[in-house]
Write a protein that binds this DNA or RNA. Structure first.
Lengths: 221, 221, 221, 221
DNA sequence: AATGAATGAGCGTTCATTCAT
DNA sequence: TATGAATGAACGCTCATTCAT
């Protein structure tokens, strides 16, 4: 029984987070991805970026894919933590909480890290199932958080209606990335778009009637 | 990082056979980009995809960058044509025209070509100035078209307010790409999102008061 | 009988000198060789240098080797003509004629054309028998011309002694090429070296005794 | 055209096996250059010549230019060592030492290595500044060594006169390369030319009067 | 006579990965 | 742990040459 309990990683390779070396590699890998793009995301450049030799990076991450996976795990983890904090705002009203989440999301979208990372991930997700799945899981939890606030604002909506509205709100905000994200052409318009978003997504969440979405779909059919 | 190429490359192909070849290369290049992603976008794979030799692809496009530029020129051209058609709907009311444009955009976003192409372009635009600029120009014209309909619906808005609303609407729709685009996780929710979009973007365009956006920004400051 | 008489070139290809196109190719080829070196001596660069297409250069010179051969033929021809003129100086004494030839050679060596051409040819001759042979023939005639003057200055020398002295004088002068030739490091010393050459090669030719060379060789053995 | 590289590349190879490999590459590179010429001096042929893979040669010499530079460094180093030895002949008279240097130079010129190497270098120096500079530095030290003996033979000469005579003697000897070098047409005449060189360059060094060179230049003006 | 098109080989270089040290 | 060495494949590109037009 006791023999079965082990801390050794199931997969080959030595990529325990917390190790100085592994952390340095991951940090370098992220900065290469953000600063130079997916095409420059090579073991060589990552090694150079953290002052190591190619062989050592390969020793810690025997497959490049592993590095990507661990890197994404770490990144999504940090996003999850941030997201979790946004829910824990007990002294705010439901409306204020939704406004806060919207503000937080758009603020984050404007950051270099999020702009660069997610545009790369959306592209990579087209042909990499692992990335696609991780991205999907992440956004599912984003939708869930938004959904909590939507449901609080408009309790009569069905769970599916809540999900649909959350998807709409989340997608609309993410759409800001290639337009108003870091160094994007309309970045200076972010205050206006953030203001409209806060106002109208709250208005949408509050004013949609149960069954209204289905009715709208039918009318358009 | 990439230098801006001001002189668009002349499209190669003088003889009939040559133009056919160039077309075949461009078609293959697009299909490689869409089906396999930017990482697979190599001269060798493109040549293989159209049954040619590497040297012949290089003959018609001596620089890989030229191929990318001609390909993007062709693609954006076809989008521009499509966009132009959407404006020429004289027998519709302003509201119906805006609904039509929204429907068309989201319908297009759901297509494989647009989903794949633009997710790749958003990522490439991060570190390729030529692509970034082409994408910017394209979306500028999209915003302009949407802006025409917004202005028609709400003539009292200032040009800047119209631009801001158009940007908001366009960005919100584009955000559907990584969520509801081709083979994306919530693709089946597209009818609902398209319905909400049509309804609420029209409502937004009609009901925003002149000066209201500025007021919203100030309140949030 | 009459059918056997033809102006068509024996070898394939159409590289009749005098033709405008062929002359332009040859001129461009020489300038590429001199200005950019043997590594840049490609059909493409030659074609570009004379504003033609690759296919046309290949049409006139189906094999690159042919171009080189014709080019060298022309070049050595022009050198032969120059050399011939140097002999036809009837109103000068033997000594003055030798001084004239030496001056002419060193003056020519200082020219861009000769400096560049012969340094390239010496290298190419290492592994190209055609070039090696052409170079040999050319220098043979140079030695012969010098030998005529040496023999006139010192009629008692045997033909072989004349040839040896001519070879020594010619080699010594050619050695100026990589040192004092066009844009070479000691080019500014050419007047001094030319003066010493004229003085001492004449002195050598005049003062060597028959049999002396053999004696010198034996002493050193 | 080629940029001057001021920092000489560190010679690669840390492990014993690595230094052996680097040596093998350099040896193969030299033999390719000598046996097949500059046009055949490719990474692929060098790799084949030492039984390695292209990637490994590129590993040890990431840039082809580095290989050339290290190769030349090694070669010139060996020539410098040889040259240095020729000066250290304390038991000989000045005249005998000059004769020795002349004999050594011409003997070396007749070797395959020197004949091939320097004819290639003279050509490459036309359009490669790095090579041109290395060749210049090498010959500067050659002239200096010759100059020491000339000055000892004729102490009244000015430093500039010594340099001029050394240049004349060195250039005259180097001129033997394309005529009497390895497998060159008049290689069999080398004993005679070496004998004349020894005799007459010594005579020249001894008998030139201070100021005589200037006088000769003026007379010719 | 001239040229666009096409080929097959080769170029220097970079890549992820393996392995002995 | 860490790294130098090595591999085999692929990269974009250039080459001389051929051929139909």
């Amino acid at each position: 029984m006791t023999e079965l309990v082990t801390d050794a990683p199931v997969r080959p390779g030595v990529y325990l987070r917390g190790t100085e070396t592994v952390d340095a590699i991951l940090k370098a890998a992220l900065s290469v991805l953000l600063d130079e793009g997916a095409a420059a995301f090579t073991i060589r450049r990552i090694a150079a970026a953290c002052g190591m030799k190619v062989g050592n990076v390969s020793y810690h991450f025997p497959r490049k894919e592993m590095l990507i996976q661990v890197l994404l795990d770490d990144l999504f983890n940090s996003y999850d933590v941030k997201l979790e904090l946004s829910v824990r705002q007990p002294n705010l009203s439901a409306e204020e909480r939704l406004r806060t989440v919207i503000a937080m999301c758009l603020d984050d979208i404007a950051s270099k890290r999020t702009t660069r990372l997610f545009t790369e991930l959306w592209a990579l997700a087209n042909h990499n199932d692992f990335i696609a799945e991780r991205v999907r899981i992440f956004y599912s939890s984003v939708h869930e958080v938004i959904g909590e606030h939507v449901a609080a604002l408009n309790p009569r909506l069905s769970p599916d209606e809540v999900r649909t509205l959350s998807l709409f709100i989340s997608a609309s905000m993410e759409g800001a990335t290639p337009f108003l994200g870091y160094q994007k052409p309309w970045a200076n318009k972010m205050p206006a778009i953030a203001a409209i978003s806060a106002e109208w997504f709250v208005k949408l969440a509050k004013s949609i009637e149960p069954g209204e979405i289905s009715r709208m779909i039918e009318q358009r059919g």
